[in-house]
């Protein structure tokens, strides 16, 4: 009896220590990020103003605002979305609703995993070889956005697939039994019950393309381009490349300026993230079955 309690006591202490250790590791992983965000805010905060957001860079990019880069990033992300969402959703619908269990389906899954693992600079090389030169789009928003679209395709597919699979199979069977075709079932039952999940997932994942730099460097983003783009065949500035340029290639940049640009870029991404995470929380609390 005595021995047993002794043992339990030791177990409890080990348990407590282990738990504390893992918590510490988790926090050490997260803390630097919070610190970094803090530093960015502290150093870049003073730069931020409406004027900073809505004016052009001046004086060899050592002064002025980020308007063309901000507008360019929005162009790039939106065009990339327009390309990747239809393809990605179609692929996810195929995998979730149609694909038989065969070698082709396994190959598709493997291709998705590998597509997600291709380094961003290799995507850039592909964009240069395929879109800029082979398809003759030139260095343009179109070429850059298509490169981004292919890069984000795997996450669009995976997050859409998750939403589609969350719709119980019994709903589909009930619909099929009424003589609905597969597509009628998808359109009337599966999609209405997963569309909000699909959209939040897609926004969450795709917002991250706003931060991509390597894939757009040689396909459509320009280091300096004071004019706002007018069509998808124009080149454009982008926030991510702008940050790279002024912190690596431009001399005599005031110290606070790149912090300000980084803050705008992160702010853009995090606000999109926050919207979709908030939306997701609301959706999860609204039970439909």
């Amino acid at each position: 009896m005595f021995e047993a309690t002794e043992l339990n006591f030791r177990d409890n202490r080990v348990e407590w220590a282990v738990k504390a250790l893992f918590l510490l590791m988790t926090l050490l992983l997260i803390l630097p990020v919070l610190l970094i965000l803090g530093v960015l805010l502290y150093r870049g905060g003073p730069v931020l103003s409406w004027e900073f957001l809505f004016t052009q860079p001046t004086n060899g990019m050592t002064a002025g605002g980020v308007l063309p880069a901000l507008v360019g990033t929005i162009w790039l992300v939106v065009v990339a979305l327009l390309a990747s969402v239809p393809i990605g959703v179609a692929a996810a619908i195929y995998l979730s609703e149609y694909a038989p269990q065969n070698a082709l389906t396994r190959a598709i899954n493997l291709a998705i995993i590998n597509l997600a693992g291709v380094p961003s600079i290799v995507h850039a090389l592909f964009g240069v070889g395929a879109f800029v030169y082979f398809f003759r789009f030139g260095t343009s928003i179109l070429a850059a956005s298509l490169t981004l679209a292919i890069m984000t395709l795997p996450v669009v597919i995976v997050s859409t697939l998750e939403s589609l699979r969350a719709v119980p199979h019994a709903f589909r069977e009930a619909c099929w039994n009424m003589g609905a075709t597969r597509w009628q079932t998808i359109w009337r039952v599966v999609l209405p019950n997963s569309i909000s999940g699909i959209l939040t997932g897609v926004i969450l994942e795709v917002s991250r393309t706003a931060g991509e730099t390597a894939p757009i460097m040689f396909t459509g983003a320009a280091m300096f381009m004071p004019l706002l783009p007018r069509s998808v065949f124009d080149q454009t500035m982008a926030l991510s490349l702008h940050l790279y340029t002024i912190s690596m290639n431009v001399p005599d940049v005031p110290e606070a300026l790149p912090y300000g640009v980084a803050l705008v870029l992160i702010g853009l991404i995090l606000s999109m993230n926050a919207i979709s995470i908030g939306f997701r929380t609301v959706l999860r609390s609204r039970r439909k079955w």
Binding site: P86, A90, A91, Y98, A111, H123, F126, L153, I186
Partner: peptide, 24 residues
């Protein structure tokens, strides 16, 4: 028709992986 369209979407990942390899 939809089955055909989503099938093309489905194999797009394979097409793109090969496309990347071929173009690079």
């Amino acid at each position: 028709a939809v089955q055909l369209i989503v099938f093309v979407g489905g194999i797009s990942a394979i097409i793109f992986i090969f496309g990347i390899f071929i173009f690079v």
